[in-house]
Nucleic acid binder design. Structure first.
Length: 800
DNA sequence: AGCCTCCTAATTTTT
DNA sequence: TTAGGAGGCT
């Protein structure tokens, strides 16, 4: 095991033994603001605790108070508490709040961080046990894909049929389950056309020679080490005397094993989570972990936080009504002491553009404070969509009306092209062994080194058993690459040597060196000479990157951490509406929330329902579609983001992949309890005809009489009418569910003439679930998801 | 080596 | 519809 340095978090020091008096003597003002459930969750310090914390129930408060309590009572010292989160943001927030609770900065808390950042720290101590050196690099997704592409090519696999992305997904899945190539179960043998297992082994071997690991490895390697080296595990078990886990419902198998191993001794583990907010199953999260907690830790104390401090009663009731549709739950019922508030608002629109237009106007109205409401800041409003492509309609609309907005999500700072290029240069300046970095920048900026030149370098490197930089050096020395490329390569190699020497000599000049490297390599010039509109932004980002270096002591330290900590929180001063995905919104709250696109196929998304992951229900009444349940949890997350005003909307028509489709309102709409929903009249569809009630909206989309008739015959429209009818005469005895007759939903039968965007006209030959066997007139027999099929009669007159 | 055109596929995303 | 990738052409 590596030596610990002076500042080591584990540095031995006698732990003061605490008497009951000592504990009682310390004031605990932080306990006063807690409700009984929170207080219980805070005060039971020893043994396993499961804190089931519903949305907005003060879970972070309880968690941070618990940490403060552990410290304040002297039960644990800062370096004996392992507190794990999923995001850096959550870790940061936790640190800040613990500090403010204790009224002092918490110097230390070295083991409060993300799963990944903690595992990096641990793995750097024990890297040699999994065949790595302590200064291993962490590959980002891009590097991973490039590596896998090479492997796929080397194995003579057709990359078009078996893309690297797919392999990356397969391997990632295995790693999430902590399956190393050695323990990969036989059931996985067929993965990736039967080549998965061997490619996985090759990939891991390649990582080892590169002295690198990917994100999944961080966890998996630590689990492996803990499993194989009992002495090391024991040591950490005694060091981490208290374990706290945030968002436990999002843990995957590897994380679960890691936690279980560490907690196995003292079992002082407190997991906080909400099974109803488990929305990351698709990336390996196992709701099962939280559902099984009491079995894993017999005698666990289970505390439910159910008092909500965020939303109005109507909003909570709507959320509860929807989530009640799920079978697989531990069961919680949110309640609030707050009274009053608006009902959840539901509105249907003609199409996606109109929905965006309406939301824009509604936002402007809220901002200026009409309709008896106080004016609201744009910062207090958010639009939460299921899929990022939905954002476009809103962006387009907001641009035309000049409504400021911010989009959350998209590429992270460190994922940007220019940042990764720059980092590759830095990596090479620090270590010339970094082949992936070399490959990345060898011809960036252009040096006249194309595929052929790179192959030459790779060949030389392989023959001599050296790194690519050394291979390049040989190529330069032997004149293996001629002309412009040869000259460029010579300059690059000289540059790398110079930078490396300079950094070794004066490591603390790294900020200036970073600038020098970007200058001398020609990278800055490359963007200065670039005429595309993105170029200035990229140069800005490079400046920011250099600035970020200032908070590190040297380039090496920067590189070791950067891939884990570079998140982009945009803190701009101007008030803006937020647009983001439902996934991105978890953990956030806004006074006003818009939830557009509640249409079957979009939300719940067709894909998630088609995945076909099913499970027996507890009562044997049938099968549960797990994909659908996760979508429903997403709906629950969406609604519970709203504090005061929650507006759900759907459109009767939407353009999907460039093709207009009529849409049905989401089944989740039907699950909203009618008593807590106000159905708004859709301008343009209800009442005195188009545009009648709400003023004019410019050119009417319904000017064409034929399409208007079609619109009124569409299933979506029929369902809308049903909604409207229900609003006018609510049934007193059936408050739950806006249950609407679904007979209008069209389906296909054998022999139907149908139309498909790409394949043209055809005849339905058979039906399997939602897939149709169709004999196309031109394209022949195909199996197509019914979603992509319209009756032939409608093919010509799809609206717009 | 670099540009251009054709083809294909198309949630959700943190580290 | 559109974006990104691959392959072909100059």
């Amino acid at each position: 095991m590596s030596e610990f340095d002076e500042n080591d978090a584990f540095e031995a020091a006698a732990r003061p033994s605490l008497s009951a008096q000592a504990m009682a003597a310390r004031p605990m003002p932080y306990l006063d603001g807690l409700n009984p459930a929170q207080r219980e969750a805070v005060e039971v310090l020893n043994g396993p605790v499961l804190m089931l914390a519903g949305a907005g129930t003060g879970k972070t408060k309880a968690l941070t108070t618990r940490i403060a309590h552990l410290l304040n009572t002297g039960q644990a010292r800062t370096n004996e508490i392992l507190a794990v989160t999923f995001t850096n943001k959550a870790a940061r927030e936790m640190k800040e709040r613990v500090a403010s609770l204790l009224g002092q900065t918490v110097e230390g808390m070295p083991w409060m961080g993300t799963f990944h950042s903690i595992c990096v720290k641990l793995l750097r101590r024990h890297a040699e046990l999994v065949g790595l050196k302590t200064n291993f690099t962490i590959l980002d997704t891009d590097d991973q894909i490039r590596l896998m592409k090479q492997l796929i090519a080397a194995n003579n696999i057709d990359e078009k049929r078996w893309p690297a992305r797919l392999l990356a997904g397969v391997i990632d899945n295995w790693k999430n389950r902590a399956w190393t190539p050695e323990v990969l179960p036989a059931s996985e043998a067929n993965a990736f056309n039967g080549r998965g297992p061997e490619l996985y082994a090759q990939y891991q071997a390649r990582l080892k020679t590169l002295n690198a690991c990917d994100f999944g490895d961080l966890l998996m390697h630590m689990v492996t080490i803990f499993q194989k080296h009992d002495d090391i595990l024991k040591q950490y078990q005694s060091w981490f005397r208290y374990i706290l886990v945030d968002e436990y419902q999002d843990t995957n198998v590897a994380q679960y094993l890691w936690l279980r191993l560490l907690a196995a001794g003292h079992k002082n583990i407190c997991c906080v989570g909400d099974d109803d907010q488990s929305i990351y199953g698709w990336r390996g999260a196992e709701v099962g972990n939280i559902l099984r907690f009491e079995k894993d830790f017999p005698g666990a104390k289970v505390v439910r936080l159910e008092q909500n401090y965020r939303s109005t009663a109507h909003i909570l009731a709507a959320a509860s009504g929807v989530i009640a549709g799920n079978e697989d739950r531990l069961g919680k019922e949110l309640w609030t002491a707050a009274e009053g508030g608006e009902k959840v608002r539901l509105i249907g629109h003609w199409d996606g553009d109109e929905e965006a237009r309406w939301v824009g106007e509604e936002i402007e109205a809220m901002q200026s404070g009409t309709r008896g409401r106080a004016p609201m800041s744009l910062d207090d409003m958010a639009i939460l969509v299921r899929a990022s492509h939905q954002m476009r309609a809103f962006e387009d609309r907001f641009l035309t009306i000049g409504l400021p907005y911010r989009v959350i999500g998209g590429p992270r700072f460190y994922e940007r092209l220019e940042i990764r290029d720059a980092m590759a240069y830095f990596r090479l300046a620090v270590s010339q062994d970094d082949d992936l970095a070399f490959e990345r920048i060898v011809n960036t900026p252009r040096r006249g080194l194309g595929d052929k030149a790179v192959q030459t370098i790779q060949g030389l490197a392989r023959q001599n058993g050296v790194s690519l930089v050394e291979g390049a050096r040989i190529a330069v020395d032997t004149g293996a690459i001629k002309g412009k490329g040869g000259k460029g390569l010579a300059e690059l190699v000289m540059g790398l040597d110079r930078w490396h020497a300079q950094l070794r000599a004066e490591a603390d000049t790294h900020v200036e060196m970073a600038e020098v490297i970007l200058e001398e390599s020609g990278y800055t010039d490359m963007w200065l000479n670039d005429k595309t509109p993105e170029a200035p932004g990229r140069l800005e980002n490079l400046k920011e990157l250099v600035k970020a270096l200032e908070s590190f002591e040297n380039l090496q330290g920067f590189l070791e951490h950067i891939s884990l900590i570079m998140d982009n929180d945009t803190d701009d001063a101007e008030e803006k509406v937020t647009i983001m995905t439902l996934h991105g919104a978890k953990g956030l709250e806004y006074p006003a929330v818009f939830l557009p696109g509640w249409e079957d196929g979009l939300f719940p998304s067709q894909r998630s329902m088609d995945e076909g992951k099913v499970k027996e229900t507890g009562n044997g009444s049938g099968l549960v579609n797990l994909g659908l349940e996760e979508e429903r949890r997403l709906a629950y997350v969406g609604i519970t983001r709203a504090e005061e005003i929650c507006t759900i909307s759907f459109a009767a028509n939407r353009r999907v992949y460039g093709q207009w489709q009529s849409q049905l309102p989401s089944r989740f709409v039907d699950e909203l309890p009618a008593d807590h929903v106000e159905v708004l009249t859709a301008p343009g569809l209800y009442g005195g005809g188009y545009g009648g009630a709400a003023g004019d909206f410019g050119a009417s989309p319904l000017e064409d009489k034929a399409s208007r008739v079609d619109a009124y015959n569409s299933p979506g429209w029929k369902r809308m009418q049903a909604q409207g009818a229900l609003r006018s005469k609510p049934s007193p005895n059936e408050s739950r569910g806006l249950v609407i007759d679904l007979e209008a939903v069209s389906s296909f039968t054998q022999g139907d003439r149908v139309f498909h965007t790409k394949f043209g006209y055809g005849t339905v030959m058979g039906i399997e679930g939602d897939k149709l066997d169709i004999e196309f007139d031109k394209a022949g027999a195909k199996k197509v998801v019914s979603k992509f099929i319209v009756p032939a009669a409608q093919a010509g007159d799809v609206p717009f």
